[in-house]
Design a protein around this nucleic acid. Structure first.
Lengths: 193, 193
DNA sequence: ACAAAAACAGACAGGTCTGTATATTTCAGG
DNA sequence: CCTGAAATATACAGACCTGTCTGTTTTTGT
C-alpha cells in the first residue's frame, strides 16, 4: 500500500545495516562503498540515490546506530534488573555485557570522531550530540538511584564509563566495567575507608 | 665521528617528526607518504630506506611520540609543582595544559588503536603497552601522594583520565580535566558529604 | 682527495577510492 | 495492461594510495 515501506525498505535498510556493521567493525575510512554494496547486495546507483555521498551515508549510519544501540542497551538493562539490583547496577551489567560481546570494538561515536578528525564533520557533530544524550541518560539513572547526590556525580561517572569503554578496547578485556562500577559506587555512596 | 649522528640525523628525524605531527593532527590513514615526504623535505626513497613500509613508519612514529610526549608532560608537571602542590596536583595541571594546547586532538595511542582497528598491528600493540606504562606512572604518583590507599585507586583514576582525554576531544573543552581531578581527589581522600 | 654511503628528483606500476554515466530489468498502482 | 519509479549491472573517469626503479648529486669517513 504505502509506497515507501514493504519491500522497498529492504534496499535502504540493508545499506544502513551493512554500513553500520562494517564501519563499526573495520573503521569508516577502511570500508569503501564497493564493499558495502557488495555485502548489502545492492547496486552502486541505489546507494548513491539514497545517500548523495559517503559522508551522508556515514551520518545516516551513525544515526541508525544510535537507535539500534540504545534499544539493545536498554533491553540489556531490563534483563539485568532482577532481585535487589538498582538501575545503576543494571547499567553496569549492561555495560559489561556489551564489553563481552564478540563484536565489541568500543564506542562507535568516539571511533567516528577519531577517524573523521574534523570536528565540523556532520558525523563528528552528531557524535558529540550523542554523548550529551548519553550523559543525560546516565544522570537520570543516578538521580533515580542516589538522588541529587548521585546526579551531582554524573559528570565524573560519565568519565569513568568513557574511560572504561576505551580501556576495554585497548586491553581487550571487560574488567574495566568492574573497576568503573566500583569507583562509581564509591563516588555516590562515599568511601568507607 | 659517530656515523649515525651529526647532520645525518636530519633526514630520519625530520621524517619521524613530520609523520608524528601529521598522523596525530589528521589521522594515520588520512595522511599518505607523499604528504610526509613533501613536508619533511626528503625523497621518497629516503623514507623507504629508513622505514620499509608505512606500517613500520607508523610504529616508529608512535615510539617517537611516546618519548617526546612523556618528556613534555613531565616538564609540564615540573613547572606545575609550585608551593604546596602535590605531584597529583601537578599531574592534573599538566593534563589540563595539554587539553588546552591548540594542537590537542586526544591520545595518539587511543587514536592509533581506533584507526588501525586490528589489535595485532604492531602500532596497536605498542599503544596497549604504552597504556600499561602510563598506568604505572600514575600509580607511582598516587603512591607518593596518598600512599597505598592512593595506589589502590590507580586503576579507577586511570579510567577517569582516559575518559577525560576522550571527552575533552569530543566536547572541545578542557573542563573534563577539572571533573576528573575532583573525582580523583574524592576517591583518594574519601568523600566529605 | 677519494671512495662509499646516503639523499636526492621524478617517473611509474598496480591497486583502491569516490562518484558518474548508461542502458537494462523489475515491479507496483491506476 | 501500461506507465513510471526504483533497482539492477557494468563500465569508466579522475584522483589518490603504497611501494619500486633509475640515475644523479650530495655528504661523509678515512
Amino acid at each position: 500500500m504505502a509506497t515507501t515501506t514493504d519491500k522497498k525498505r529492504s534496499a535502504r535498510e540493508r545499506i544502513l545495516e551493512t554500513a553500520e556493521r562494517l564501519f563499526y567493525a573495520e573503521g569508516i575510512r577502511a570500508v569503501g562503498v564497493d564493499r558495502i554494496i557488495a555485502e548489502a547486495g545492492v547496486a552502486k546507483m541505489t546507494l548513491y540515490n539514497h545517500f548523495p555521498s559517503k559522508d551522508d551515508l556515514i551520518l545516516a549510519a551513525l544515526q541508525h546506530r544510535e537507535a539500534t544501540f540504545m534499544d539493545r542497551f536498554t533491553a540489556w538493562m531490563e534483563e539485568a534488573k532482577t532481585g535487589r539490583a538498582t538501575r545503576l547496577d543494571a547499567f553496569f551489567s549492561a555495560l559489561k555485557r556489551w564489553f563481552e560481546s564478540p563484536e565489541f570494538r568500543g564506542c562507535a561515536f568516539i571511533n567516528a570522531s577519531v577517524e573523521l578528525a574534523d570536528p565540523a564533520h556532520p558525523g563528528a557533530q552528531f557524535s558529540t550530540a550523542h554523548k550529551v544524550r548519553f550523559r543525560e541518560l546516565l544522570k537520570e539513572i543516578l538521580q533515580e538511584t542516589a538522588g541529587s547526590t548521585g546526579a551531582k556525580q554524573s559528570d565524573a561517572i560519565a568519565l569513568l564509563v568513557e574511560g572504561a569503554i576505551v580501556s576495554a578496547v585497548m586491553e581487550q578485556s571487560a574488567r574495566p566495567a568492574d573497576v568503573a562500577k566500583e569507583a562509581a559506587v564509591r563516588l555516590v555512596k562515599g568511601m568507607k575507608k
